[in-house]
Amino acid sequence: MKRPACCLSLLLSLTAGPALAHPHVFIDATPGFTVQDGQVTGLRIVWLYDAFSTLVMYDQLWLDEDGDGKLDATDMEKIAVGETTWEPGYEGDTYLWHDGQKVPMGQPQNGTARMEGDRAEVTFDLPLATPLPATGTFSLKLYDPLYYYSYAITAVLPDPETCTSALIPFEPTAADREVQAALSALSIEQMPDDPNIGARFADEVVLTCD
């Protein structure tokens, strides 16, 4: 299912005063590519959630049931499974193109979770539906179309052999800032007019292979 950690109704109950919705969840992401035998086979993705979204997980995923204030291996498994079990048709806010053509992806595999201070970190593999030759240009963006989640690609995992990746950070223009300000003023129940507005603010990772 879509990541349950930030259920809208739960966020409403936990947020004091008027809740602003876009964005409301902040994730530092570290992606990378997997290349085997001359083919791009998938992605490796790390999500580091903000502290408030992590707090929501405690309630939504029934963490720390013994009340000792510590998360154990069972809690980590709950987070990993909860955040990497996706409903059919949900793309995980992960979009990949090869030479301009969108690449179908599979379902998350090998999910793990750990705590980084007061923030939950989830790592998983995301295979391509069909491996592709490691030629041409691959473009990866992580974004929520409705911009409820905000992804910042803070680093890129080490490049596979024969390939080079480059991070192209989103650099907002004055017009972008105006749009972001308008979105931040929406209430938690309101949705943007543009159903793909999140793509406008996305960082990009470009992979090229010899």
Rank of each mutant, 00 (worst) to 15 (best):
W86F: 15
K102R: 15
D72M: 04
F26N: 06
D72N: 15
G92Y: 01
I79M: 15
K78S: 10
V40R: 00
A120E: 05
F138R: 02
L132G: 05
L126F: 05
D93F: 15
G82A: 14
Y58M: 03
Y90N: 15
V103M: 11
A113E: 10
A80I: 15
I79C: 03
P104A: 07
G117F: 10
Y49E: 08
A113Q: 11
L43Y: 10
T137V: 14
T123F: 04
A113D: 12
G92V: 02
T30A: 03
Q39L: 12
Y58R: 06
D68T: 06
L96R: 05
G117K: 07
G42D: 01
A134C: 05
Y49G: 01
F26C: 06
M76F: 11
I27A: 11
T112M: 13
P88D: 13
E83A: 03
G38Y: 03
F52E: 00
W62I: 11
E121R: 13
G67F: 09
D99N: 15
D64K: 07
G89L: 14
E65P: 12
K70C: 02
L140E: 01
T30N: 02
T54W: 03
A129E: 13
L142D: 08
H98V: 08
K141Y: 06
K70M: 04
E91L: 04
K141S: 13
G67V: 13
G89F: 15
D118H: 00
Y95I: 03
P127D: 04
G111I: 12
L96K: 06
D72A: 08
A73N: 06
L140P: 00
Q39E: 14
T30F: 01
G38Q: 02
A51T: 05
A120S: 13
Q109A: 13
V35I: 09
G106V: 01
M76E: 05
V122D: 14
D68F: 11
G117Q: 03
P133Q: 04
I79Y: 05
G92R: 11
E116F: 05
V35E: 10
V56R: 00
F33Y: 08
P131L: 01
V46G: 01
S139V: 15
L132Y: 02
D75G: 06
P127S: 07
L63C: 11
Y49C: 02
T30E: 11
G38F: 00
F138W: 04
A129N: 03
P131G: 08
V103C: 09
P108Y: 10
G32H: 08
D50M: 00
A73K: 09
I79V: 15
A134K: 00
L61Q: 09
Y49W: 11
G89W: 07
L48P: 00
R114E: 13
S139N: 04
T41C: 08
